[in-house]
């Protein structure tokens, strides 16, 4: 199982959480994961859409109190 890096993007507005995720993906190895915490209500739909488009994998999404926890696995 790969390493998981957490990005707390709560308080950032669209497309801030997505951009932080993409910047984070550049820094990790294939197989590792990023967990983004986002209070931007669009992220729960936008990030999975971006992940599917560019060919990474969703590893999970959880709706928490006031934010979403979105986990993305780098596959390429």
């Amino acid at each position: 199982m790969g390493k998981r890096t957490k990005i707390d993007a709560r308080g950032a507005f669209c497309p801030g959480p997505l951009m932080e995720l993409i910047a984070g993906l550049k820094l990790i190895e294939v197989g590792d994961e990023i967990e983004v915490w986002s209070s931007d209500t669009g992220s729960a739909k936008d990030i999975p859409e971006w992940v599917a488009k560019v060919g990474h994998e969703m590893a999970g999404i959880e709706h928490c109190e006031g934010y979403d926890s979105i986990v993305v696995r780098k596959v390429k």
């Binding site: 507005f13 497309p15 951009m19 993409i22 910047a23 550049k26």
Partner: peptide, 18 residues
């Protein structure tokens, strides 16, 4: 007021990451 991303910073990010 809400601190949404600065437009010019967004463009710079787009250049850097895409």
């Amino acid at each position: 007021e809400k601190g949404a991303p600065d437009a010019i910073d967004l463009l710079r990010q787009g250049k850097m990451l895409g």
